[in-house]
Simulated scan of single mutants.
Amino acid sequence: MLKDHAKIMYAVAAAGEIIGRKKLQKIIYIAKKIAFPFQERFQFHFYGPYSEELTLRVEELCNMGFLNEVKEKKGGYYQYRYTLTESGKEFLSLNEIDMPYLADCLTDMNSQSARFLELVSTVLYFDNLTKEEVREKIYTLKSKQRYTEDEIEEAYLYIEKLKQKAKLQ
């Protein structure tokens, strides 16, 4: 029952702390796309792939006392910080999660900006299209972000780097 919840807890634990709801969404989506066994379904939304299921699971984990969510005022908006609580650490120690190499990938993703992860997740969302078609989607759907050719190429290289880290190629 809580296996999918435990995977999210493991992700937060491996990252240490995840700052931002958008960043959490992108990290889980990217991990799923590079073949880690996350079950949440994602749809394309304003900021790229988004999962209502993930939002609900995170909320449940906070309500159960396994995840700590701290809401901070940053300028004109609120930012959320996620960490594992002591109860969450105890729960994880009793429920082994077998996702080798995930921690290394998560640490790497967590060090990236939410803006870059939004680009990477958008590239992955349209991975059934050619590079040129993906570029067009990005320029159309993400015009406000003003991603450059170099950033898009960097996203492709980053995806390959993560796949290498995950030992999936």
Rank of each mutant, 00 (worst) to 15 (best):
Q43Y: 15
I34E: 03
E53H: 11
I34N: 06
L61A: 01
R41S: 08
E72V: 06
E52C: 05
E40K: 05
K74M: 09
F44H: 03
E60K: 00
I28H: 04
I28Q: 05
E40Q: 13
P37N: 09
K32M: 12
Q43I: 15
I27Y: 01
K33E: 14
V58D: 01
N68K: 14
F36A: 06
I28Y: 03
E69W: 02
F66D: 00
Y78Q: 13
R81P: 11
I34K: 03
P49L: 03
F38R: 05
E72G: 06
Y47M: 01
C62S: 06
G48C: 08
F36Y: 12
Q43W: 13
K74Q: 15
K71F: 12
F46R: 01
K32E: 10
L61W: 02
Q79M: 13
Q39R: 11
E40Y: 07
I27R: 01
K71A: 11
G65W: 02
F36I: 10
K33A: 11
G76E: 15
I28N: 02
E72P: 05
Y50M: 00
L56T: 12
E69Y: 10
H45R: 12
E72Q: 10
L61F: 04
C62W: 06
F38P: 03
A31C: 13
A31W: 00
G65F: 07
V58P: 01
F36H: 04
I28K: 04
F44G: 00
I30M: 05
Y78H: 14
Y77E: 13
R41T: 14
R81G: 14
E69Q: 13
